[in-house]
Design a binder for these strands. Sequence first.
DNA 1: CGCAAGATTGATAAAGATCAAGCCGGGTGG
DNA 2: CCACCCGGCTTGATCTTTATCAATCTTGCG
Lengths: 248, 248
Amino acid sequence: MLDAFRFKNPLINRLKNFVDLSNSDVAALSDLTANSRKVEGRVDLEREGDEPRGIHILLSGIVCRYKMLSNGHRRIITFLLPGELCDVHVRVLRRMDHDLATMSICDISTVTPRTIAKLEDEHPNIMRGLASANFAFESILREQIANIGGREAEPRLGHLFCELYYRMKMIGLSGGPSFHLPLTQNDLGDAIGITAIHANRSLQSLRKAGLLTFDGRRLTIIDLPRLEKFSDFTPGYLHLPPMKNGGI
Amino acid sequence: MLDAFRFKNPLINRLKNFVDLSNSDVAALSDLTANSRKVEGRVDLEREGDEPRGIHILLSGIVCRYKMLSNGHRRIITFLLPGELCDVHVRVLRRMDHDLATMSICDISTVTPRTIAKLEDEHPNIMRGLASANFAFESILREQIANIGGREAEPRLGHLFCELYYRMKMIGLSGGPSFHLPLTQNDLGDAIGITAIHANRSLQSLRKAGLLTFDGRRLTIIDLPRLEKFSDFTPGYLHLPPMKNGGI
DNA sequence: CGCAAGATTGATAAAGATCAAGCCGGGTGG
DNA sequence: CCACCCGGCTTGATCTTTATCAATCTTGCG
């Protein structure tokens, strides 16, 4: 039952990490994600400067937030995994301050701010869960700032891989040490603030060190403890649910 | 009356940007900040790995969040200005994933999570305001990621200055083009991911270009439009309250 | 087959880090 | 009151990391 939910509705699964959901809460969340649509990869969901179209709930696939700079660089701010997203803040912020785009084919359900507002009255637990998930996500942004600003290219890339691995594992998308990661080297570079060429060379170096492989959109972490050490990665900032901490 | 509040209680002032506060809300917020204490500069309020001590409300001065990396670098994640902070997330996250420290002498009021929880029932408007303020703050983190990852040292530093200027102005702490900024060049470097020496050289370059001066802990922006252009800065991501947009 | 996107390689240039001094100004102790 | 000390600022020289430029290679696919 739980496992069915885990794959069927990653949003419910995620919120259960933070709050207890009643049957009625679960039903409401199922409604929220009932009419999802498939979106191709490399499609913009929201554009900087526009009024947000709605609150997107990612059910499968990978999405990113990015910003274009005046020097022509695209900077990927963060990746969003299934069950994340839910831009609750569109209720507050009138304009998108960044773009939102799919990296791969995705299942996405888009709801109106009004729908969320209704939850506030009828399902306060859900709102608390969403708020908590958002607080946890904020810490990923903070670590990202430290990572980009403070580490050299190779550990920086390794750090990103470690983070994605733990986040994937958390939602059951990385069974073993290997998972599907539909990113190009260009994407990787944009995500950690280096050029694609340098990303390529850093990747090679990690490969040669026997830490991981990354072929055909699949990342395999060969030696996680060593990769973590090399990349100065500690999962504390992810605030993993305590029960599942041991399982990783 | 409003102006008195502006200086007296920056938290109330900030929340008014997002929600309408009843007299009772205002009273509750005044209570919240009633017993503040003075804290010297360069003092840690929270340490990474510890259980948070409480929710700190910054009433005057500058605080920063930072992380120490294994390579010995200190990375400043973000600066917090009066009325900000209010780490509401300590209710959710059991351990600090970063350090919190004063940069200058500060007025700080520290309250318990329970106090905040009580607000949830009695003053839902306050909670909404806090949540909104937090969403707005998150966009600062996103821009910080783009700034560090995507711009060269000089515009990067200029961008930080622009941001601090707008944020100071927003809370009435920068009357003219000049404001007190109690940071060393070392701090600046740690905040934008460069060495102190390079921060020094970047600063000189901005000075020579006639864009600003920064002497004795005081920043004076000589030519804001040109500095913004040079630094690829646009204030949209700050989500300034619409009424005050024109005034800047 | 041949194209196009992505990956790879090598050579060179630029940005930024590091190392090593010197300077300047405010605070302290004799 | 002055010498000195120390933290922060400044400068120059050198080294490392990363970007840029220019190809070439590989591979999935129409």
